[in-house]
Simulated assay, not measured.
Amino acid sequence: MSVSLRPGKKALSVARTLHVYVSMALLLLMLFFALTGITLNHPDWFGASSADTQRDIAPLPAFLVPVEASSVRWQDNAAHWMASNWQGNRAEVEISDDELVLVQKGPGRYRTITLLSEAQQVEIETLDYGLVAVLNDLHKGRSTGPVWSLVIDISALLMLIFSLTGAFLLLPQQRRLKRSLGYMTAVSASCLLIYFWFIPA
């Protein structure tokens, strides 16, 4: 008794519908991840490895003068002011005897705000790596927050659905299926050979 692996018409119809609509929903995201894969692999081609640096100095507000660097209350007030003024988080402010530091990381950007107790001023240094670096960090999900992380997870899930439904639709087409499996085996084997032969241990 032979068992047929040929899927039914209803299953194929569902798979075809999923494949078409998921592919259209993912079209721009797949193009984004494909293009940023190239920019990530070659950051020097697009200037993503060099930053424009901007330095600014800001005075302390009146309620923080005179400076009482050793006072816990003053430190707390200063930390809250820094977090509020630069849209940061109070818990991220690092406090020491002579300075308070708030580091903010975003896609393609790195900013350090330093309150110098002795100088009674705040120094702000901003490193901007440009648009390509922003896109690269979005690709990696680096310094992008939980919402964008969820977008990446959903995109990955939809890509799995897109790939698996595409393979499922090939099952009734035995000739194309065999040819596709051959391509898959050749590409996968090539990647393994490249890994073992050309990638340093």
Rank of each mutant, 00 (worst) to 15 (best):
G166P: 03
D76T: 13
G145K: 04
A119E: 12
R175E: 05
V132T: 11
L169D: 03
N77F: 06
D153I: 03
T17Q: 08
Y129E: 02
S155H: 05
A69M: 04
V134H: 09
A25K: 07
K178L: 12
H80P: 01
L164S: 04
L40V: 05
A58T: 10
T144Q: 05
H80N: 12
F32H: 07
L35C: 12
H42D: 08
I124Q: 07
I194G: 00
A62L: 08
T36S: 14
E123V: 13
F63M: 13
G47E: 03
M30T: 14
G37H: 11
L28S: 07
A48Y: 06
W197I: 09
S49Q: 12
Q173W: 12
W45N: 03
A79D: 05
L193I: 11
L135K: 01
G130Q: 06
P7Y: 05
H80Y: 07
E125F: 00
V103Q: 12
L171W: 08
P146A: 12
V20R: 13
I113Q: 09
H139Q: 08
S23R: 06
N89L: 10
G141N: 05
F198C: 10
P107Y: 09
D52C: 01
K178G: 01
T185H: 00
I124A: 08
I154N: 00
A186M: 11
M30I: 14
D153L: 09
T112Y: 03
F198T: 05
V187L: 14
L100E: 09
S190E: 00
M24I: 15
A62T: 07
H139F: 12
R175F: 03
I57S: 10
V22I: 15
I95R: 15
W148E: 04
R6L: 13
Y110G: 01
S4L: 07
V65R: 10
V101D: 02
Q87H: 12
K105G: 08
P59V: 03
P172I: 03
S23G: 15
